[in-house]
Each structure stands twice: as structure tokens, then as C-alpha cells.
């Protein structure tokens, strides 16, 4: 089950980054996100699975769709994209990413960087009631960290970070509004962005 979901996620992602048409890519990306959400469920994290579906696959993707709609990318865009993406462009980045992947997988394979579950449980002084005891390791598969625990953690230990995240969102909102606003400009030449246009009515 886990492997199936993982393969779906990876294949969908691979397809998403290689599509020429942006809308197709988005559809594959949604598939990828949905499979990651399923992975979350399997990992015992139903809350973030829901969040993944709602926010990532829902809200953020809708933003993309809107923008693509506004940009009005048609078949000619696919042609242009084909020109921008010759096959040999994949070689260098592919190698680089392969090396990085190798480096990421190396410590996983020989286990040296991951402490065992038992010692970690000693180190954890958290009061969350769902922490399993050492006496019942077989219960681990049922151990689901639900929204309640996440909420308690979020609004106790990470309260300051939550507020900072609020600031970040506000800044994103203001920034997006400011940047995306259409300014009345006489000409939109390629070099025009270097010179801020100050020709207001005053």
C-alpha cells in the first residue's frame, strides 16, 4: 500500500515537471499532492492529510489555475515551451539532482543518522497522551497523532511561531496586492521595469 502510493506520487511529480502544457502539469501536480496526502494518512497524520488536500491541492492550485487563466496560455504557449525545453537541457540538472538524491539516500541506507525509537522516547518529555509506552510497541501502527494534539502543540509551544506565520501571511497579502496592482503606464517596454514610472497625475 505504502509503495503503491509512493510510486504514484513520484510518477505524478515526474510527469508534472515535464509537461509542456501548464494546465496538464497542474493536474499531475494535484495527483502528486493527493498521493502525498494518502501517505500522511498512512503515517498516522490525518489532520495534515486533510490540510494537504484542502490548502495545497485546493487553494494553492486554484491560485495557479487562476493565474494561468489570466495569462491566457494557449497552444502557442506549448509551442514556445517546446522551444525553451530542448532534451539536452535535462542532462546537467538531472545529474546534479541525482548526486543530491544519492547523498540524501546514503545516510538512510546505513541507518547511522536515525536514533532508535526506544531512546527517542526517553528523550521526549512531552505530555501528549498518545505517546506509546515501551511496553506496547505493537500498538505503534495504531498510534494516530490527531488534530487535538497538533492544536495543543501549535497554540502552546509554537504560539510565537503561529503569530509570526500570521505576520508572514499579512506581508504576503500586502506584497501580492502591491505587486499585482496594475499601474497606469503609457508603454510597457521590455526595459521599463528598470525605471519606476513616477508620472502620476500630480
Amino acid at each position: 500500500m505504502f509503495w503503491l502510493t509512493s510510486i504514484v506520487a513520484i510518477v505524478a511529480t515526474l510527469l508534472a515537471i515535464s509537461r509542456l502544457n501548464a494546465t496538464h502539469a497542474l493536474l499531475y501536480l494535484i495527483v502528486s499532492f493527493l498521493s502525498v496526502a494518502v501517505l500522511f494518512l498512512q503515517l498516522g497524520a490525518p489532520f495534515v492529510a486533510a490540510i494537504e488536500v484542502i490548502v495545497y491541492a485546493g487553494a494553492i492550485m486554484v491560485l495557479f489555475v487562476f493565474v494561468i487563466m489570466l495569462l491566457n496560455l494557449g497552444p502557442h504557449a506549448v509551442e514556445g515551451e517546446r522551444q525553451l525545453l530542448p532534451p539536452h537541457a535535462w542532462i546537467g540538472p538531472g545529474l546534479l539532482a541525482a548526486v543530491l538524491l544519492l547523498e540524501l539516500l546514503m545516510p538512510l541506507s546505513n541507518n547511522q543518522f536515525i536514533p532508535t525509537t526506544g531512546t527517542a522516547k526517553h528523550a521526549d518529555h512531552s505530555t501528549i497522551p498518545t505517546i506509546p509506552t515501551e511496553a506496547a510497541p505493537q500498538l505503534q501502527e495504531r498510534m494516530v497523532v490527531g488534530p487535538k494534539e497538533v492544536g495543543i502543540k501549535l497554540f502552546s509551544t509554537y504560539l510565537l511561531a503561529v503569530e509570526l506565520a500570521g505576520f508572514l501571511l499579512l506581508a504576503g497579502l500586502v506584497g501580492a496586492f502591491h505587486i499585482g496592482r496594475e499601474e497606469p503606464r503609457t508603454s510597457a517596454k521590455p526595459g521599463a521595469m528598470e525605471v519606476p514610472s513616477q508620472e502620476g497625475p500630480a
Partner: peptide, 21 residues
Amino acid sequence: SHWQAADGQVMFLFIITMAAA
């Protein structure tokens, strides 16, 4: 999930917030 702690999910929430912005 490995350590049965909610912190991982909290971090994911922050990442998703950042991604949205």
C-alpha cells in the same frame, strides 16, 4: 510520525503557510 510527536505536523503547517504566502 516516527517519534509519535505532533511537532512534525506543526512544522508542516508552518511550511504550508509559508508556501501560501
